[in-house]
């Protein structure tokens, strides 16, 4: 039970894949412009991560060591393709808004990193749990970054990415553009780097304070 708690703490905080291990930077920058995209990406990656960790852990003694990376990539790509086909058939609206980013999950290095650093050395149940906790850590980071970027860069919350005021727009307008124009730079890639930097700094601050309190 303690080990389980520790895994959750690792995934969400002390070894948060995005904010502490700095893995999976591409989706953290590219897909974090709206909250829905960020969370959708996080949850899809979590699903793939749980599946790939489980299978890789189960096959860890059968895969020859020298080709393990190639084998992991085949397994991960297989799951991503399956998710893509199933979403396209049964959840077409989600597939349409996330469609561009789902193939990107294959190259999300969090998934390969967890296969290599955890699933290849641990049992099936622990590896599946690792997939869940790391995935939730990634989803949480994506949520924080995209929340900040959407509110500041677009003035909206839960928008579907269409321009404010157009007929297709759905979501909440927090800051109407005529009251205070959104900071476009935050929605651009540059704002992604800035936001990511500030969120990482805040995370470090919180953790170092905790460590001090723990010692005192």
């Amino acid at each position: 039970m303690n080990k389980t708690l520790a895994q959750f703490r690792n995934g969400l905080f002390t070894q948060n894949p995005t904010l502490v291990l700095l893995l999976g930077m591409c989706p953290a920058l590219a897909v974090s412009t709206t909250l829905l995209n960020g969370l959708g990406m996080g949850l899809c990656a979590t699903l793939v991560l749980i599946c790939s960790n489980t299978v890789i852990s189960a096959l860890r003694r059968l895969i020859p060591e020298k080709i393990r990376i190639a084998a992991y990539v085949v397994i991960i790509a297989g799951f991503v393709t399956a998710v893509e086909m199933l979403l396209g058939a049964y959840l077409p609206s989600l597939s349409k808004s996330l469609g561009l980013f789902i193939p990107l999950i294959v190259v999300n290095c969090i998934i390969l990193a967890r296969a290599e650093a955890f699933a290849s050395k641990n049992g099936v149940a622990r590896s599946a749990l690792d997939g869940l906790t790391m995935g939730l850590g990634f989803t949480m980071s994506m949520g924080i970054i995209s929340l900040i970027r959407e509110v500041l860069g677009n003035g909206t919350l839960f928008s579907n990415g269409k321009p404010v005021g157009s007929a297709d727009f759905t979501g909440l307008v927090l800051i109407p553009p005529d009251v205070f124009p959104p900071v476009l730079a935050i929605a651009m890639p540059m704002g992604g780097f800035l936001t990511l930097g500030f969120v990482i700094a805040a995370m470090q601050r919180i953790m170092s304070r905790r460590r001090k309190e723990g010692k005192a």
């Binding site: 893995l23 860890r60 003694r61 059968l62 895969i63 020859p64 060591e65 393990r68 990376i69 290095c109 390969l112 990193a113 290599e116 650093a117 290849s120 050395k121």
Partner: peptide, 20 residues
């Protein structure tokens, strides 16, 4: 891509114990 130094150590120690 993130490669760890200890990568795959247990698997390397006894490759294919199951099949063998």
């Amino acid at each position: 891509m993130s490669e760890r130094e200890t990568a795959g150590a247990p698997a390397a120690a006894e490759p294919n114990a199951g099949i063998g």
